[in-house]
Amino acid sequence: MSIYQPTPPSLWSGRDAGTTAYWHQAVTCLDYPEIPSGIPEKKIAIVGYAGDEGVRRNQGRPGTALGPDQIRKMMGPMAYHLPESLRVYDLGNFITVGDQMEETHRQLYATIKNLLSEKVFPLILGGGHDLAFPHGKAAIEHCLDKGEKLGIINLDAHFDLRSKVDGKGHSGSPFFQLAESYPKDFHYLCLGLQRAATPQELFDQAISCKTAWVEIEDFNMSNWHQIVQVIDNFCQQVNKIYLSIDLDGFSSAYAPGVSAPSPWGFSPELAAKVIQWIAGTGKLMTLDIVELNPHVDIDNATARLASRCAEYTLRNIFSH
């Protein structure tokens, strides 16, 4: 069982202003997970995945179900710099009840697939990284319908190529499930991988599905020239890009509020460079930000980082 829950408009709050100066003024909350028809302007749809089950199955720390609303709270007071003609809709949350994660995935898949077909840019807020399976499935199939090739770029400490457990997916398996479901159409780049968190069998799995990656020791500002060559080579081989930002890839100095924190992660400065470059290709089609766990966050540091990642990505896509 899965529950759909509209976002209360009061969740988006901030300073009052006579013009649209802040995000809370730009967002329209809807009572259903669909964009109104007949609106010609460019559109963004925010969708929340309030689910912990995938994290539990992967032996992580529960709490990510609270992530989407906390990101909204931090995003509301932020300054708004997108074009006036752009429309931003909040379509609410899909909430997993008990262990019925697969039902929530089915609803997420259908919603994202519909948004893409309507030329809406989806911003999916997690929630566990297991949401990358329905998200990636919708994106791959959308591109296949158009005769295009999708590339997936994941900013993450982990491949998330683990096998399913007892035939069920989890927060560590979404890209394995995509590779399994679309072996000829799975094109994947992981940035910030941590070898200490990755057993050899997962490197073998990555090689078998032709994954590209940059390990954390090489993923730093001083190595930007080499990093951008890897990203550029990957992007040139695809038509569209799905970007996934797992907050546990950041150093815990910046992102303490995640299921699997690490002091050895990358910096917001480098993530911003990557985001800016990818957005500049004109190929970025959809985005998710995952693994925020407000239960273990400190002064909303991780929630604020997540909201900045969302705002910065959208600004770089739509302000040009």
Rank of each mutant, 00 (worst) to 15 (best):
residue 5 Q to R: 09
residue 5 Q to V: 12
residue 8 P to T: 06
residue 9 P to Y: 05
residue 17 A to E: 08
residue 19 T to V: 14
residue 23 W to L: 04
residue 26 A to C: 06
residue 27 V to C: 10
residue 29 C to T: 13
residue 31 D to M: 12
residue 32 Y to R: 14
residue 34 E to M: 13
residue 35 I to S: 09
residue 37 S to V: 13
residue 39 I to K: 11
residue 39 I to H: 13
residue 41 E to Y: 10
residue 42 K to P: 11
residue 43 K to I: 14
residue 56 R to C: 11
residue 61 R to K: 15
residue 65 A to T: 10
residue 66 L to M: 15
residue 67 G to A: 03
residue 70 Q to G: 09
residue 70 Q to L: 14
residue 74 M to D: 01
residue 74 M to P: 00
residue 76 G to F: 01
residue 76 G to T: 02
residue 81 H to P: 02
residue 82 L to E: 05
residue 82 L to V: 09
residue 86 L to I: 09
residue 90 D to K: 09
residue 96 T to Y: 04
residue 104 T to H: 11
residue 108 L to K: 04
residue 110 A to M: 07
residue 118 E to G: 05
residue 120 V to C: 07
residue 125 L to W: 00
residue 126 G to I: 01
residue 126 G to T: 02
residue 128 G to N: 02
residue 136 G to V: 00
residue 143 C to A: 13
residue 143 C to D: 15
residue 147 G to Q: 07
residue 148 E to G: 10
residue 148 E to A: 05
residue 149 K to H: 11
residue 153 I to C: 02
residue 157 A to N: 01
residue 161 L to M: 02
residue 162 R to C: 14
residue 163 S to T: 09
residue 167 G to C: 12
residue 170 H to I: 10
residue 174 P to A: 03
residue 176 F to N: 06
residue 177 Q to L: 08
residue 178 L to R: 02
residue 182 Y to W: 05
residue 186 F to L: 08
residue 187 H to W: 03
residue 189 L to H: 06
residue 190 C to H: 05
residue 190 C to P: 04
residue 191 L to F: 03
residue 194 Q to D: 06
residue 196 A to E: 11
residue 199 P to T: 13
residue 199 P to W: 14
residue 205 Q to H: 05
residue 209 C to P: 04
residue 212 A to H: 12
residue 212 A to R: 15
residue 219 F to V: 09
residue 222 S to K: 15
residue 225 H to Y: 12
residue 225 H to M: 14
residue 227 I to Q: 05
residue 230 V to G: 01
residue 232 D to V: 05
residue 233 N to A: 07
residue 233 N to T: 08
residue 234 F to C: 02
residue 236 Q to G: 11
residue 236 Q to M: 11
residue 239 N to E: 08
residue 240 K to E: 15
residue 242 Y to Q: 13
residue 254 Y to G: 02
residue 258 V to S: 00
residue 261 P to A: 07
residue 265 G to F: 00
residue 270 L to C: 10
residue 271 A to F: 10
residue 271 A to E: 06
residue 273 K to F: 05
residue 274 V to E: 08
residue 275 I to K: 14
residue 280 G to F: 15
residue 282 G to N: 11
residue 283 K to Q: 15
residue 284 L to P: 13
residue 288 D to A: 03
residue 306 A to I: 01
residue 309 C to D: 12
residue 309 C to P: 06
residue 314 L to W: 14
